[in-house]
Simulated scan of single mutants.
Amino acid sequence: MQVAELLVRPHPIIAGWVARREKEIRKGEQVYDRRLKRLVRPSAFTPQERRRHRMLDALLKALEAQKILVTEGERLELFATSGRERIEFQFRAKLQQVRRPLTADEQRWRSSGDKDYKLELVETDILIFEVKGWLPGGLRRNWQDGRKGTVEMMVGDILATLVAAFPLMAVEREQREKAEERRRIEAQRRYELEQQRKLEENRFRRLLEHAGRWREAELARSFVAALRAAIPDPTVVIEDKLASEWLDWAEARATQYDPLASDPLDVFESIADVTNWTYRDR
């Protein structure tokens, strides 16, 4: 794949960048204050930027020829999309840290012992193509100018790598989705087993409650029978009620308390009504 020496009929994204810059330059020309104009007027594209545009133009057109959609984000980031997979990439200049002499104002506020320079990052003439993020299969993610050649010579390799990445990304995404589905199913199975265990515990708790009431009712009836035998005069009045009436009351209450006093199947009806939320103390 060849990178053109001149930008002719640029890709819409590149054309948009050029149009915006030209509009900003024209707007800056309308500022009449010379000092303010120097601050607000943008400069024309540098040779390095134009070089970047030519390489991007060639790459974007080649990607779209491969049925790969190319889009621009809100912050001018670039994306290549195929199906459900997306790759973010950029051309950028390599940065280098340099020492910058202090300005007059900085010199004025400089303290004794302070360095007489500032460290800054500046762009170099070396261009880098970078895939922002991870690529599957150990695919290469960075290309840059070097002894082996310029990035222009590597655009074909960049294109081939991006094209090859998409099916690998699709396979890995499908594998992740299947693994996630298995985890979801297993988690649902554990949840359902836990809910079933809790329901069984609550139902057994209700059964124990009925058993406890039955035992207590039996104990109460036995106690009332013992009372009848122990009380010599059932006609004794206690709180306006005969002792025999108190005995009848106690026996009736014990019978009402007994879960087997009515239909025994009501016990299982009561157990069937139990839910996981019947007992709030667990």
Rank of each mutant, 00 (worst) to 15 (best):
P12W: 01
L260Q: 14
D145W: 06
M55C: 09
E218H: 07
S222A: 02
K148S: 14
K241P: 02
A160N: 14
G156V: 13
M169W: 08
I13L: 07
S270K: 04
E120S: 04
S112E: 15
G16W: 03
E201W: 12
I87H: 10
Y257V: 05
R100Q: 11
F91T: 05
A165I: 12
G28A: 06
S244Y: 11
A217M: 06
S244F: 08
W249K: 06
D266F: 15
R100D: 01
L219W: 12
E152Y: 05
Q90P: 00
D273H: 11
S222P: 00
R197E: 15
D116M: 10
R140F: 03
K198Q: 15
Q188G: 08
I87P: 11
E209G: 11
S43F: 05
F129A: 01
R228D: 04
D125T: 12
D33S: 10
L63N: 01
L208H: 11
R99F: 01
D273F: 03
A58K: 09
R108V: 12
Q2R: 14
V31F: 04
P101S: 08
R51C: 04
D233S: 12
R215T: 08
A93D: 05
E216M: 09
R50G: 12
L95H: 07
T275Y: 04
F91P: 04
P167C: 06
E5R: 08
R38L: 03
R280G: 13
T161H: 06
L119C: 01
G73P: 07
M55F: 06
V131H: 05
E64G: 02
F89I: 07
R205Q: 03
N276T: 15
D125M: 10
L162C: 02
R183L: 09
Y257E: 12
